[in-house]
């Protein structure tokens, strides 16, 4: 459970996180159109990986901790990935759901 990560490493990770935050804000101001979402998610995943591996010490943890961390990612993939596979592969039903799952706004 004890990690052997130095203050120097922590500082490098922290600075990297700040640089990546700057990058993602910069990218969001560029005219990337539909690419905003994937670019934002790739940078966010990189930041999350740095926090999980170093700040949460997973990189020096035993195999069971790795299994739990990867298990969380895997179940998240099932939850979001397979749900989206369903929605994105049935364009006809989406058009129908457009009518049924929303109600007109009354203000």
């Amino acid at each position: 459970m004890h990690s052997h990560i130095s203050l120097r490493t922590y500082t490098i990770i922290f600075v990297s996180l700040l640089v990546l935050t700057g990058l993602t804000v910069l990218a969001s101001r560029l005219p990337l159109g539909a690419a905003h979402m994937p670019v934002g998610l790739i940078i966010a995943s990189t930041k999350a990986m740095l926090v999980i591996l170093f700040f949460m010490h997973v990189i020096h943890s035993d195999k069971v901790t790795w299994l739990y961390a990867l298990g969380g990612v895997y179940w998240l993939f099932i939850l979001i990935g397979l749900t989206m596979a369903d929605y994105l592969s049935r364009p006809v039903s989406i058009n129908k759901s457009h009518e049924t799952i929303t109600r007109p706004v009354t203000r």
């Binding site: 969001s28 998610l41 966010a44």
Partner: peptide, 20 residues
């Protein structure tokens, strides 16, 4: 740190993925 990781994903999804 977990709470931090949640925000790391909320930030681009809610604030940065508009039309620009």
């Amino acid at each position: 740190h977990f709470v931090d990781v949640v925000w790391i994903f909320l930030f681009p999804l809610l604030y940065l993925s508009g039309g620009g």
